[in-house]
Design a protein around this nucleic acid. Sequence first.
DNA 1: GTCTATAAATGGATAGAC
DNA 2: GTCTATCCATTTATAGAC
Lengths: 194, 194
Amino acid sequence: MPERRASARPKRKRDAAATREAILEAATRRLATQGYERAGVREVAADAGVTAALVNRYFGSKEGLFAEVIARALDMGHLLRDGRANLADQLARVVVYGGEDAPDGVLTPLLLLLHSAAEPRAIELFRRDLDRTQLRLLAEHIGGDDAAVRAAMVLAQLTGFAILHHVLRPEAFADARGEKLVALLSKSLAACIG
Amino acid sequence: MPERRASARPKRKRDAAATREAILEAATRRLATQGYERAGVREVAADAGVTAALVNRYFGSKEGLFAEVIARALDMGHLLRDGRANLADQLARVVVYGGEDAPDGVLTPLLLLLHSAAEPRAIELFRRDLDRTQLRLLAEHIGGDDAAVRAAMVLAQLTGFAILHHVLRPEAFADARGEKLVALLSKSLAACIG
DNA sequence: GTCTATAAATGGATAGAC
DNA sequence: GTCTATCCATTTATAGAC
């Protein structure tokens, strides 16, 4: 994918679709790292190489913009692509190392969730999507008795680990080697996937 | 403890200590439910039955106010009171059922963390407190090799579970019985506590 | 389709009266 | 010890030019 950022932009003029996409990408990044409140329309616009006025023209308001961001960012189907043999290790590796191979990175949806937790409207969107698609899919891959509850437990562990590893970053995690974290997380996940 | 809220307050006049405490309680509630950004000094003051000017007089600034809220809410020492025999089960039970026996409830510090995750200053306060006291204390109770990393893993699991159970509330958790959740979480925690 | 300029609102902080 | 009134920075949103 070609680089599309603010500095020395190739002056993509009068291409509504590309502009809209650039705004969505910038908004996703801002929302994932700063949360709903701190993510300003001005900053999003600047990242996308446009002005705040244009963002509001396309998405109506700040809320409309981020509603669309959340809706398209939550899809975690790519995490469950192939064999469910060592699913625990597979998931652990993705969360520890950030999952750069995925569309928006595995980190993005988790950070979106975390940083939008104070926003009731965002929470409701998350719950709906989880119950209807993500957790259902995960439960199928896990299988066995109480698959639904255990799938939610897995998501809880992934969420909690991501928060500490990527947001709070306590010394213990910063000092530890990646493989040590993978081993510990994988073992904990296996206790639920088992 | 006598009721002390905004409506028809008993006109506690000129009692600095009580006023200060009322402000701290109100600030804790606001910060836990709304996060740093949405929690306004005006609203906190109104909840406590005073004005914003007085809040700033006591705590210097919004940041000073919430720094004190976080500092006193994060103390989780009471979770590790007695025997570390079945620590996993003990912790799981507290998080599943909310831990009403604790000072502010176990839920409050977790919600504080969750809802302030987008605020760099709040995050920094959390990390400092965790590294210096909470995680160190937890690591001592766990013991063994890599106690520091495993303590952080335990905190990650508790955090993640609390988020799903108390904030997102997916159907799978809402439907499940408490003891089922305790069993699953306890098993996962044991994988880290060893 | 995109910008500049600006209006309108919010919210944190301060000064000074009582 | 507490309030009223005000200042000031920030930020969303809009109007209108190009």
